[in-house]
Amino acid sequence: MTGFTFHGGRLAEAMAHFGTGDDRWIDLSTGINPHGWPGADRLAVDWQALPDAGGLDNLEATAAAFFGADPDHVCAVPGTEIGLRMLGDIVPGPSIHAWPSYGTHGEMIAGSRAASPADLDRERAGTVILANPNNPDGTMIPPATLLDWLNAPRDAASWLVVDEAFADVLPAISVAGHVHDTRRLIVFRSFGKFFGLAGLRLGFVLGPREVIAQYRRRLGSWPLSAAALAIGAAAYRDAEWITATRTGLADQAAALHALLARHGLRVTGDCPLFRLIEVDDAAALFERLGRASILTRPFDYNPRWLRLGLPASEEGLHRLDKALADG
C-alpha cells in the first residue's frame, strides 16, 4: 500500500490495485468536505478571456474579510501545496517542522528538522512550521499559545509558519487576523477542503507585505484561472452556506465517530472533516475496506494509524458500517 501513504485521493491507483468491482467507490482518504459548495455550476466563466486583475483583487479582498485579515497581507496562490513549496525560496532555513504532520512541511525548506509539537515551544532558532489543526491527528494549539511563541525571544531570521488548511471548520483557532508587518508570522489557508472543491486548486498565503510582494513577483500576472477567481469570491461571500456547513460537518463527524466506536475502533485524533483510528494492523484494514471499494488513508510512518474522511451520504455510512462488520 506504499503508493497510498503520501497523499489521499489516489482513486485511480486504488481502482487499479483492487479492481473496479460492481460498487461505486467511496473516497474517504482526503479529509475534504464531501458536500462541495453548490454554487459553482451557476457561475458564468469566460474561458476565452485572460483572468481579470480586478477579479484577483476582489477574490483576495473577499477572502481577507473571511479570514479576518487585512487584504494587503493576503495573496492567492494556485493551491497551498504550491504556496508552501515556494516559501523555501522566500524564507530559507534553518527550520524545524512539527511531526507527524504534512509531508510537504518537511520538504519545503531544505534541511528542515522534525520535532514533536510538544518540543516546538522550546525552539528559539530557525523557522517553525506546523499545521493547526494538525494533520492527521487533529491536534489544536490555542492561538494564545502560538502568539506567545511568536513573541518570545527568537533568532532574528526565524518565522512562525502556520498551515491552517482545516481552520475553516474551526475559525476560532486561526491566527490569520494577527498577520502584520511587525510580526514574523506567515499563515496558509486552503479553499478546497472546507468548500469541497479541491480540484479548483486555490489557496492563500498571509504574511507581511514584504513576503506578499515576493510571492506576487514569482507568481506573475495570471496566477489563477478565471473559474478560481469567480468561484472563490462567491463561495466566501455565502455566509448562510458556510454557517450551515460548519454545523452539518460537526453532525456528520459525530455520526462517523459513533459508527467507529460501535465496531470497537479507537479514535485517537479528530477534526470535523476526519477521524484518525489506531488498530493493530492498519494495512490489513486498509486492504479490507479497499476490497469493499472504500479508500482510506494509511501512513507508512505509523502502521497502526488509518484516517477516514466523512462519507457523503447515509448510503456511504451504511456501506462503511457493513464493510467493518464483514471483517
Rank of each mutant, 00 (worst) to 15 (best):
F6L: 12
H7K: 10
G8K: 07
A12E: 14
A14I: 00
H17P: 02
D23F: 05
R24S: 10
R24V: 08
R24Y: 00
I26P: 00
D27Q: 03
P34M: 12
H35D: 03
A44C: 06
A44Y: 11
W47F: 07
Q48F: 09
G54N: 11
N58M: 10
E60Y: 00
T62I: 01
A63N: 05
A65K: 15
G68I: 02
V74A: 02
A76W: 03
V77N: 08
R85I: 00
D89Y: 03
P94K: 12
I96S: 10
H97F: 15
H97T: 13
E107I: 11
S116Q: 12
D119T: 05
D121A: 14
R122H: 12
A125R: 15
L130T: 11
A131L: 03
N132F: 04
N134A: 14
N134P: 00
M140I: 11
I141E: 04
A144Y: 01
W149K: 14
N151W: 08
A152P: 03
P153T: 05
D155N: 01
A157S: 13
W159V: 12
L160T: 10
V161F: 11
D163G: 01
D163Q: 02
L170M: 10
P171R: 10
A172K: 13
I173K: 06
H180T: 08
R184L: 08
L185P: 09
I186C: 03
I186V: 15
S190R: 06
F191G: 01
F194E: 09
A198R: 15
G199L: 05
F204L: 12
V205Y: 13
P208Q: 10
R216K: 13
R218W: 00
A228G: 04
Y236Q: 04
A239W: 13
W241H: 09
A244P: 02
T245S: 15
T245V: 02
T245E: 14
R246V: 02
L256Q: 03
H257K: 15
L260D: 09
L265N: 07
V267Q: 00
G269E: 10
G269F: 09
D270W: 03
D270T: 13
P272C: 03
L276Y: 06
L276V: 05
V279T: 15
D281N: 14
A283W: 00
L285V: 08
G290R: 06
R297A: 13
R297D: 07
P303K: 15
W305Q: 06
R307H: 04
L310M: 04
A312Y: 01
E315V: 09
H318M: 06
R319Y: 08
R319D: 08
L320S: 05
L324A: 04
L324T: 06
L324C: 01
